[in-house]
Design a binder for these strands. Sequence first.
DNA 1: CTGAAAGCGCTTACAG
DNA 2: CTGAAAGCGCTTACAG
Lengths: 352, 352
Amino acid sequence: MSSTIYDIAREAGVSIATVSRVFNNNPKVSPATRDKILEIASSYGYHPRAQAQSLARRKTGLITAIVPIISNYFFMEVLAGMQDRLAECEFELQISNIKTSGEVRGDDVRQQVEDIFKRGMSDGYIVVSIHFDDQDWEYFKKYETPITLIDEYYEGFDSVSVDSVEGAYTATKSLIDQGYENIAMLCAVKDSKPVIDRSNGFRKALEDHDLSFNEDHLFTGLDTERDGHTELNGYQAMKAILNDSNSYDAVFCNSDIQALGALKAMKDYKKTLPIISFDDLSFSQYLGLSSMRQPMYQMGNIAIDKLTNRINQPQIDVTHTVFSPELIVRNSSFEDAFSPDPAEDKFSADKG
Amino acid sequence: MSSTIYDIAREAGVSIATVSRVFNNNPKVSPATRDKILEIASSYGYHPRAQAQSLARRKTGLITAIVPIISNYFFMEVLAGMQDRLAECEFELQISNIKTSGEVRGDDVRQQVEDIFKRGMSDGYIVVSIHFDDQDWEYFKKYETPITLIDEYYEGFDSVSVDSVEGAYTATKSLIDQGYENIAMLCAVKDSKPVIDRSNGFRKALEDHDLSFNEDHLFTGLDTERDGHTELNGYQAMKAILNDSNSYDAVFCNSDIQALGALKAMKDYKKTLPIISFDDLSFSQYLGLSSMRQPMYQMGNIAIDKLTNRINQPQIDVTHTVFSPELIVRNSSFEDAFSPDPAEDKFSADKG
DNA sequence: CTGAAAGCGCTTACAG
DNA sequence: CTGAAAGCGCTTACAG
């Protein structure tokens, strides 16, 4: 096994306390001994063992992000936002993935999350895109550990999220304002949290504009992988929309990743409907896909800020940040969705 | 602070050794005391602290994946492969991101990786898409810790990778076989490892078929984010290819993410060139993009297998798995790239 | 089946 | 500026 603080202390002819001080940047060590210790440590490849430090310090210097395996594109962009903020502070990020779909039941999900809290591996936790009812969140209070929620809301924990209902409303209203009256919604698995919110916003927009709504307006594909947030599901659902006897004239789509499949279905079946999607993933710009932008990067930033604040001051008031998603209009909003953009030079300059 | 093993032991009227045995599933505990302890533990929300266990056991039960921040789509799919394998064994995954581009120098990258090894937080490490010369890898041997390389080759460590040179050769040869004679390569940052390999394969294919090659055949965009593996870089590079006086008749593209930008550039400028890309990300199927498939999921599987084997048996021989990427032909291989596919029902059944 | 005790590798007042 | 010692929360032979 590799060397310990005792080996270094012995070799340097000092106590382990002094070695420890050097690695903790304690200024009260004479430069001479410091240099000597550093040199010896380096030759042994010695560095204080992380777990031993955690135990002695009673803090781990770790933040854990708890993320469903199914969250990929959304999480990737959130992750970037977390990383850039983390680079400026003393915490390291660890990511724990949990299963939330497939044969997994809700209780199971709660158990997985609880196990992570129990192990007490981190100083704080960021829980991303995991949805429980208030009672379950309340239950986790007993761990008395800092928790920040992303893409979820519970009054008892700091949170940062996007108003999905409003976003869906905005997207749908935009299509209505363009003159469409028979709009379908391309959903994922219908009892998943984002779909519930977004279909509620969709419904409300229709009703507010005296357009009838019923369950038939809601389409989804057979593929239930990742709760239906897949290209394949979007392809299947779009195919159903195009072939539906109730010929729709526009589509609000639950997610960009599904929209990708939907666009392909439109191509394959040679019918184009205006479509507005939800997420605004980085590649959507390159597909000419209109979408409701979620400020994912920024959400990652904010979550780290909230969590580190709470770790440092456990008693401060809980705060909630709720973004209103912004509509980014691109070609897919229109019937000529597949005609090329005018070849401006915007892409040479615009890194968005 | 939350409760410790002492609290539970006191409450149950037993020694801490017995409590410990219960949580370690030691069969030599009477059912009665076991039940009692479990009940008390549950009411306290008690669970052995991970760091304390690691210290006492002299192993952490953790595997760390070391990943450049810039690796996203590729890593996401590798990650899925790791997770599914990990679910079957006793290790947990932790992910450490390091900076490899921007103002970061090679020494810096080495230092970041070394710091992770030094902290000794995990029982083994999977290093993904990080490239050093043999000397640097050899240097890491001194940590005597299990290491598996993904997307990199060094004889001293277990590894799983794809033959990029061969893949580029295959892609280029395919275009040549289709009759194209003036082929451009759409590169990312030219001194990055994948680009070096792929441009070598590209060059070799041209030369083997008596087509001239020079540096002018290599294009890249101005955007150097993620070493140029961005949609924007692909857009910029494709624009340059289309406008080049040496009018090219086909393109081999360094990565799918860049191809996305390239496809948009072709649309915007209303010129279509056959294009074959590299990666075969999950969405490429929906873009009709031909690509050299890297078996990313499988690479994740294999890396976990190799690493856990080595953790359990440190002395076994080093093994290397090198995949030959497979050409997946789709519409983009042809000049009519943007015509829709025949609308087969394949997408209803094919989850690939 | 259970307990006393040593040990894992550190940090951090406290005393000097 | 430095050391002796207690403590962090566990596990695991060893002895019974």
